[in-house]
């Protein structure tokens, strides 16, 4: 059951095409999983469409000659009545298969190998091109990320299973935005573990125990 939705302003900005593109990807994937937000964005897109395409053209804004463009478009050879490409929307880890939302399926071939992290965690990087990098993080049952806060913003979408973080419990489809005001320690006690899709724009900042010692070395471990 989805309890955490993008805020309404973000849903609208996504529908209207005015939010940052990385947020757009997260919301698009959430919308794939969430009938409520799908209805809201459809409604917003309808309103936006009416606004953009309503009414007379402004005479004070002379239009260029579109004829060439139109003819050129109609001359493009017919694409064979496209059989909908069978997109591989499954993500595999260790014999487990996860179905990805439509918006993320286009990135399966941009997803790198899984790496094992400390604490029963797995990570696979996703190359988003100009949007930078995202990660699939899989927490095995009992897996946990050391307590941390965020120097920037962290988007998280639950793809499969459940996890908690000391602030709340999250289920499949839940979407959260964390920032420097929120400190949390994600962990999963679900039998099937938990797969999330996440984007951070700045390194995590560990806040507890020995993990704090790791902060000054974030660059060092990886060349």
């Amino acid at each position: 059951m989805i309890n955490f939705h993008p805020e309404l302003a973000h849903l609208r900005a996504f529908a209207e095409g005015t939010c940052p593109t990385n947020l757009a990807l997260m919301i698009s994937a959430h919308v794939d999983l969430c009938p409520r937000c799908q209805a809201i964005t459809m409604q917003a897109q309808e309103e936006a469409g009416l606004e953009v395409f309503s009414g007379k053209l402004n005479a004070a804004d002379p239009q260029p000659d579109f004829n060439d463009m139109m003819l050129q478009i109609m001359q493009t050879p017919d694409v064979e009545a496209p059989v909908l490409q069978p997109v591989n929307n499954m993500l595999e880890l260790d014999g487990k298969h996860f179905a990805l939302p439509r918006a993320l399926a286009r990135y399966t071939h941009k997803t790198g190998n899984w790496s094992r992290l400390v604490g029963k965690l797995w990570q696979a990087p996703v190359d988003l091109g100009q949007d930078g990098q995202a990660n699939f993080i899989y927490m095995e049952k009992g897996g946990k990320v050391p307590e941390h806060t965020h120097k920037g913003t962290e988007f998280t979408l639950v793809i499969d299973g459940q996890f908690s973080d000391g602030l709340a419990d999250y289920d499949c489809g839940d979407f959260t935005i964390m920032d420097s005001t929120k400190k949390h320690m994600p962990f999963s006690e679900a039998d099937e573990g938990c797969l999330v899709f996440t984007m951070v724009d700045k390194p995590l900042h560990f806040t507890s125990g020995l993990a704090r010692l790791l902060n000054p070395f974030s660059q060092l471990f990886f060349k």
């Binding site: 990087p125 471990f221 990886f222």
Partner: peptide, 12 residues
């Protein structure tokens, strides 16, 4: 930005 910076040290 590379993942290694974003997920410091946890990553083997």
């Amino acid at each position: 930005i590379c993942a290694d910076d974003l997920w410091p040290v946890l990553c083997e």
